[in-house]
């Protein structure tokens, strides 16, 4: 526990490079962070904000377990009713959520694999290999992080209309298949976590670049790949702007299906809440299992970015 609270980076970076991390900090700063004990006031404020963070989610479940007419009364319900399963069932069939969940799993899964794989090899090249135009290409990568997605929406739309890709999943997978942030993130990680000597030693032994990637880079990058994968999966699952343009109700992602719920497709509030619950539940499960790692990953990215 002590290492977790003082050194968030190691949470995600794993134990393998913990000694090195500790070493890196030594010049000038024997101990970073501050460890004053929290008073009761701190706990009260934190508990209040935790409640604010969790309440809308809990209330989604409460509203989903009630009837529409109960939601049109005051005071609003604060405990669960008995209609959860019928509402879930209605949302499941009416909003095409079975298709939506499957589609979103395919989309988010593919984007995660593509982003993590291509970011790792590109990040490795930027961190450890020498080639012409390296700095220019790296600056270009960082520059692309500034470009808002809205800027490419019109041509992408014309393009997929041309290719008859409207309503096909590749229309939402391919445009976000790689990520400049991911490349930068992996570059930052690998330039520290991967000793150049190991690569040189492997080269002396006659290993090709591909072998080095497979046997040296991937094992060293695994913790960062996991973090990037989770961040990418969350972002892809929740992506909104482009999917609602590229897809329709015939073949929706979860966000597209929820949009149709919210825009009057179904006038029943408790069913809308049941749909919101179903669409969020898979990610909440990911959070319950990997929450600590995701927290560590965001904090690690913050220090290095």
């Amino acid at each position: 526990m002590a290492t977790i609270s003082t050194n968030p980076a190691d949470q995600a970076a794993g134990t393998a490079d913990a000694p090195r991390k500790a070493k890196r900090r030594t010049p000038g700063a024997p101990k970073a962070g501050r460890q004053l004990h929290a008073g009761p006031f701190t706990y009260i404020v934190l508990i209040v904000f935790t409640a604010v963070s969790l309440f809308p989610l809990i209330w989604t479940a409460i509203a989903a377990s009630r009837t529409n007419s109960r939601l049109a009364q005051t005071p609003p319900p604060f405990w669960f009713g008995s209609n959860l399963f019928s509402n879930l069932q209605t949302a499941w069939t009416e909003a095409n959520l079975s298709t939506a969940l499957l589609n979103t799993a395919i989309v988010a899964g593919s984007i995660t694999i593509g982003t993590v794989l291509f970011s790792t090899i590109a990040g490795f090249a930027f961190a450890k290999l020498q080639f012409k135009m390296k700095n220019f290409l790296l600056m270009l990568t960082i520059g692309t992080m500034m470009v808002p997605p809205q800027l490419s929406v019109v041509p992408l739309f014309l393009w997929i209309a041309d290719l008859d890709w409207t309503n096909h999943l590749q229309a939402v997978i391919l445009p976000t298949f790689v990520s400049a942030f991911g490349v930068f993130f992996m570059r930052q990680y690998l330039s520290q976590a991967l000793p150049t000597e190991i690569i040189e030693a492997a080269r002396v032994d006659g290993a090709s670049s591909l072998r080095i990637v497979w046997h040296v880079v991937f094992p060293a990058a695994r913790p960062a790949m996991a973090v990037l994968g989770m961040l990418t999966f969350v972002a892809a699952w929740n992506d909104f702007f482009w999917p609602i343009i590229a897809l329709t109700q015939e073949n929706p992602t979860v966000q597209v299906a929820l949009t149709s719920l919210g825009r009057g497709y179904i006038p029943d509030e408790s069913v809308i809440m049941a749909g919101a619950l179903l669409g969020t539940l898979p990610l909440l499960l990911v959070f319950v299992i990997f929450g600590k790692q995701i927290v560590g990953g965001i904090m690690q990215g913050a220090v290095k970015g």
């Binding site: 977790i4 934190l46 904000f49 935790t50 963070s53 969790l54 809308p56 989610l57 209330w59 989604t60 509203a63 939601l71 969350v234 699952w237 929740n238 909104f240 979860v254 966000q255 929820l258 949009t259 719920l261 919210g262 509030e269 809308i272 809440m273 749909g275 919101a276 619950l277 669409g279 969020t280 990610l283 909440l284 990911v286 959070f287 929450g291 600590k292 995701i294 927290v295 965001i298």
Partner: peptide
């Protein structure tokens, strides 16, 4: 750890789901 994860859960909630609840 609990506080950190709990405060990050809204980040895992999609725009769509969050907005539907807040609208209600």
């Amino acid at each position: 750890t609990f506080f950190r994860v709990a405060m990050l859960t809204p980040y895992a909630t999609s725009v769509a789901a969050a907005t539907l609840v807040f609208t209600l």
